[in-house]
Structures are given as C-alpha cells and as structure tokens.
Measured scan of single mutants.
Amino acid sequence: MAAAAAAGAGPEMVRGQVFDVGPRYTNLSYIGEGAYGMVCSAYDNVNKVRVAIKKISPFEHQTYCQRTLREIKILLRFRHENIIGINDIIRAPTIEQMKDVYIVQDLMETDLYKLLKTQHLSNDHICYFLYQILRGLKYIHSANVLHRDLKPSNLLLNTTCDLKICDFGLARVADPDHDHTGFLTEYVATRWYRAPEIMLNSKGYTKSIDIWSVGCILAEMLSNRPIFPGKHYLDQLNHILGILGSPSQEDLNCIINLKARNYLLSLPHKNKVPWNRLFPNADSKALDLLDKMLTFNPHKRIEVEQALAHPYLEQYYDPSDEPIAEAPFKFDMELDDLPKEKLKELIFEETARFQPGYRS
C-alpha cells in the first residue's frame, strides 16, 4: 500500500510507478496490472468513496492506442447498470505532455475469474450472474457493438453480487458484411471463450460470437473449470467437437473457408456428449439454455433477447427493466489503419471533457 500523499506533496508512487492523480484522489492501494497499465484503488475526496484507477501508458504502440481509444469512446457513450462506466479521466493539459491516461471507475471487490478459483456457486448465484451478463449484453448488442472478449476476468463483482462487464478494448461495431482481413492475426481474445466460426472463417462476425462466450462462462460457473481449455488453435476446435459432436452437413455448409471445411470433413465422426453427463448436478433449465448458447452453427445460436426470456431466468426476466441503447454506435473511421500519432490526438480530444474549465 502506498503511503497517503500529504496535501501538495506531488504524485504518489505505487510499486515504483508514478500515479499522478492528486489532489482529488489519494490513499492509493495496488490492485493489479494488465498488459499496459496498473490498477489501484484510491480515495475520492470529492465523492467520499474509494474508486478504481487504471493507469494506461499506450502511446508507444499502435495496438494499445487503438484499444484505449475504443474503450474510452464506447464506455463514455454507454450507460447501463451492468456495464462499468467511466467516472473521470485524468491526463496532462497538453498533448505533448500526455504520456499516461488515468481512467477512474467504480471500485468492484472482485471478478468472476477470482471468485470461481475459490468458491463453488449455488444455482441461485449462477442464475443471477447469468441474468446480469445477458442484461448488459442486450444493451451492448442493441448499440450494434460486439464485445468480443467476454470471459470471467472481464466480469466485475461486488459483495452485493452486482455484476458489471468491463474491458471493451477489443470491441467492434457489428459488421457481418465487412471482410476484416487479418482478423485472426489481430484477434487476441482469450482462445477458450472463442466461437468456432472465428477459427473457421475470417469473413465478418456477428453478435452470436458473444453468446458463445457467455455459454462458455455459464459452463464454467457450473463446474469451476473452463469447458474448452484448448492449448492452441486446432486443439481448441477438437475440444469443442469432442463435446458438441461432429457438425451436420448443414452446419458445414455455413463454413465459407474450404480449407477449414475440408479439415472438419477429414475428422472421424464424434457423438455429442449429453450435458447432464458433463454437469450431473446442474439445473435442467440451465443445461437447456447452455445447449442453445453453445450451438456450433452461429445462425442457430440463441440471441440475447431470447436467452433473457428463457425459463431458467424467469424469476428475473423483465423486458421493461432491460434497457437498450438510445442509438446504434458508430465509429467515424476504422481505427485499425491509423498511425499511433493520430490515435493519440483522438484520445486527447475524447478525454477533453474531463479537463478543468472544459467548454463543449
């Protein structure tokens, strides 16, 4: 834990890192770190609560700039109880001085990944967590956004079992017609939660990839272990087919990539493993919904509104309290091709509203 900075004593240090967030945020305490930044909790002297502050230093890398800009653009436009918001952003007053960006968010005690390492969940908890994931996802999908990296560590939890989806750095506007060349190379989302079509096709992607990830998360809540822990690309596919069985001819016809289709045709026939054999203690309604989410063919996979209306979630289902976005989200430009200098300018502009004396 960093010592509390005395008023006016300059930035606090946390594990050798400068955290320049005073005077409003003090009493910093280390939480963890990701690929390009550290997260601390801090005391907000204005709202009198502890908050989470993520320090991001992305400006050396085009990919990190892209992810940072995506996350900020999306989260500043989203407003939903099951999606983490941005409360404040701290950065230098000029673009030349801006080396880091500090993002202030609600402090959540833990995440689903940490929880599943230590606790076996009751059916009631599984049901409530799944409902909140789908409630947040309904809003995301209504904005025409794909999260693309749903996994237990991106689901934040607090002691009252509130759940918030975080990390929109890989999110995209849904565009089933656009052929994202190089899709697989830039697709760094965790393999275990990846839909089979991501490994088999490169053309376009749809909201059904997020539903697949939610199915993987439900299976993990039922058993405290990942359902498809593939060691590499082909191993991942083999794990999936080992449980779902061989795809039907109709399902194979959806695979545009001939090499991928021929690979699947070359494999020995596998039978589907019954879900109640894998999860003998699970609620039968939970397994019915799991089956509809972990469907090989993305066109037959359940959609988020149908999933919310499934009998497993009937005690929570309330369409009048499951809000959607006001308007579909649009990125003005494809960020993939922009140089990091341009992305830095866009991050600077996007964060201006939090600067003292800002006038829109």
Rank of each mutant, 00 (worst) to 15 (best):
3 A>P: 14
3 A>W: 06
4 A>V: 06
5 A>I: 14
5 A>P: 14
6 A>P: 12
6 A>Q: 06
6 A>V: 07
7 A>T: 08
7 A>S: 03
7 A>V: 12
8 G>H: 11
8 G>F: 11
8 G>D: 15
10 G>I: 09
12 E>V: 02
13 M>E: 03
14 V>S: 11
14 V>A: 04
14 V>P: 02
16 G>R: 01
17 Q>I: 09
19 F>N: 03
20 D>L: 09
21 V>C: 07
23 P>Q: 15
23 P>H: 01
24 R>T: 15
25 Y>N: 01
25 Y>T: 09
26 T>G: 11
26 T>C: 06
28 L>W: 05
29 S>G: 09
30 Y>P: 12
32 G>S: 01
32 G>D: 04
32 G>A: 09
33 E>V: 06
33 E>Y: 14
34 G>Q: 12
34 G>F: 05
34 G>D: 07
35 A>H: 06
36 Y>M: 08
37 G>S: 01
38 M>F: 11
39 V>I: 05
42 A>Q: 11
43 Y>M: 11
44 D>K: 13
45 N>V: 12
47 N>W: 06
48 K>M: 01
48 K>Y: 07
49 V>K: 12
49 V>M: 04
53 I>C: 13
53 I>R: 05
56 I>H: 02
58 P>D: 14
58 P>C: 14
58 P>M: 15
58 P>G: 15
59 F>E: 04
60 E>I: 15
60 E>H: 15
60 E>C: 15
62 Q>R: 09
64 Y>L: 06
65 C>K: 15
65 C>F: 02
68 T>I: 09
68 T>F: 11
69 L>D: 13
70 R>M: 02
70 R>F: 08
70 R>T: 10
70 R>L: 01
71 E>M: 01
71 E>G: 10
72 I>F: 03
72 I>T: 10
73 K>A: 03
74 I>G: 03
74 I>R: 02
74 I>D: 09
76 L>P: 09
79 R>E: 12
79 R>D: 12
79 R>A: 13
83 I>V: 12
84 I>T: 15
85 G>C: 00
87 N>V: 15
88 D>K: 14
88 D>Q: 11
91 R>E: 10
93 P>H: 13
94 T>V: 09
94 T>C: 07
95 I>E: 08
97 Q>L: 00
97 Q>F: 11
98 M>E: 10
98 M>N: 13
99 K>P: 04
101 V>A: 03
104 V>K: 06
104 V>N: 08
105 Q>P: 08
106 D>G: 15
106 D>F: 15
106 D>E: 00
107 L>K: 12
108 M>Y: 10
108 M>A: 09
109 E>R: 08
109 E>F: 11
110 T>K: 05
111 D>C: 05
111 D>I: 10
112 L>V: 10
112 L>M: 01
113 Y>Q: 12
113 Y>I: 05
114 K>W: 04
115 L>R: 13
116 L>G: 11
116 L>F: 08
117 K>D: 11
120 H>I: 14
121 L>W: 08
122 S>H: 11
124 D>G: 11
125 H>E: 02
126 I>K: 10
127 C>R: 06
127 C>I: 08
128 Y>H: 13
130 L>H: 05
130 L>A: 07
132 Q>T: 07
132 Q>G: 08
132 Q>L: 00
132 Q>R: 04
133 I>H: 08
135 R>L: 03
136 G>V: 00
136 G>S: 12
136 G>M: 07
137 L>V: 15
137 L>R: 04
137 L>Y: 06
138 K>D: 09
138 K>E: 03
139 Y>E: 09
140 I>C: 06
141 H>K: 08
144 N>D: 04
144 N>R: 05
148 R>P: 02
149 D>M: 03
151 K>T: 02
153 S>P: 15
154 N>S: 01
155 L>N: 10
156 L>N: 05
159 T>A: 06
160 T>V: 09
162 D>E: 00
165 I>R: 04
170 L>V: 09
171 A>G: 07
171 A>H: 03
171 A>S: 01
172 R>M: 04
174 A>W: 12
174 A>H: 11
174 A>D: 07
177 D>M: 09
179 D>S: 12
179 D>F: 11
180 H>E: 03
181 T>Y: 07
182 G>C: 06
183 F>H: 10
183 F>I: 00
183 F>K: 08
184 L>S: 01
185 T>P: 00
186 E>S: 07
186 E>C: 07
186 E>R: 04
187 Y>L: 04
187 Y>R: 05
188 V>G: 01
190 T>M: 05
191 R>E: 03
192 W>P: 01
194 R>V: 03
194 R>F: 03
195 A>M: 08
196 P>S: 02
196 P>A: 02
196 P>H: 00
197 E>V: 01
197 E>Q: 02
198 I>K: 04
201 N>C: 12
202 S>D: 04
203 K>I: 00
205 Y>V: 01
205 Y>N: 00
207 K>P: 03
208 S>L: 04
208 S>M: 10
209 I>A: 04
209 I>Q: 01
210 D>M: 01
211 I>A: 04
212 W>P: 01
213 S>M: 10
213 S>W: 04
215 G>I: 03
215 G>P: 01
216 C>T: 09
217 I>E: 02
219 A>F: 02
221 M>F: 11
222 L>M: 04
224 N>Q: 05
225 R>K: 12
226 P>L: 02
227 I>G: 05
228 F>K: 09
228 F>Y: 00
229 P>K: 05
231 K>H: 14
232 H>S: 11
233 Y>M: 01
234 L>F: 06
235 D>A: 05
235 D>I: 04
236 Q>W: 05
237 L>S: 03
238 N>P: 02
238 N>D: 15
240 I>C: 09
241 L>N: 12
241 L>F: 08
243 I>E: 05
243 I>D: 07
245 G>V: 01
246 S>L: 12
247 P>V: 13
248 S>E: 11
249 Q>C: 12
249 Q>L: 01
250 E>G: 05
250 E>K: 05
251 D>T: 11
251 D>Y: 00
251 D>A: 02
252 L>R: 07
254 C>Y: 01
254 C>R: 06
255 I>W: 08
255 I>H: 10
258 L>K: 12
262 N>D: 06
263 Y>A: 11
263 Y>G: 10
265 L>C: 08
265 L>Q: 01
265 L>I: 13
266 S>M: 12
266 S>I: 07
268 P>S: 01
269 H>S: 13
270 K>V: 14
271 N>D: 10
271 N>W: 10
273 V>M: 06
274 P>L: 06
274 P>S: 03
274 P>R: 10
275 W>E: 05
275 W>S: 06
275 W>Q: 05
277 R>N: 13
278 L>C: 09
279 F>T: 15
279 F>V: 03
281 N>Y: 00
281 N>A: 13
282 A>L: 12
283 D>C: 15
285 K>R: 04
285 K>A: 11
288 D>M: 12
289 L>A: 06
289 L>G: 05
291 D>H: 10
292 K>W: 11
293 M>D: 02
293 M>K: 00
293 M>A: 10
295 T>I: 10
297 N>M: 09
297 N>R: 04
297 N>S: 04
299 H>G: 12
300 K>G: 06
301 R>N: 05
302 I>H: 06
303 E>Y: 14
305 E>D: 00
306 Q>W: 15
307 A>P: 03
308 L>R: 14
309 A>W: 14
309 A>N: 14
309 A>I: 15
310 H>M: 10
311 P>L: 02
311 P>R: 11
313 L>W: 07
313 L>V: 15
313 L>H: 11
314 E>M: 15
315 Q>R: 08
316 Y>A: 15
316 Y>R: 15
317 Y>E: 15
317 Y>V: 15
318 D>V: 02
318 D>N: 00
318 D>K: 14
319 P>V: 07
320 S>N: 13
320 S>P: 11
321 D>W: 13
322 E>W: 15
322 E>T: 15
324 I>E: 13
324 I>L: 04
324 I>P: 15
326 E>F: 15
330 K>G: 07
330 K>L: 13
333 M>D: 09
334 E>G: 10
335 L>D: 12
338 L>I: 08
338 L>R: 14
340 K>Y: 08
340 K>Q: 07
342 K>E: 04
342 K>C: 13
343 L>I: 12
345 E>A: 15
345 E>L: 12
345 E>I: 15
347 I>C: 13
347 I>Y: 05
349 E>W: 15
352 A>I: 13
352 A>W: 13
353 R>T: 11
353 R>E: 09
355 Q>V: 12
355 Q>L: 00
356 P>K: 13
357 G>P: 14
357 G>I: 15
358 Y>H: 06
359 R>M: 01
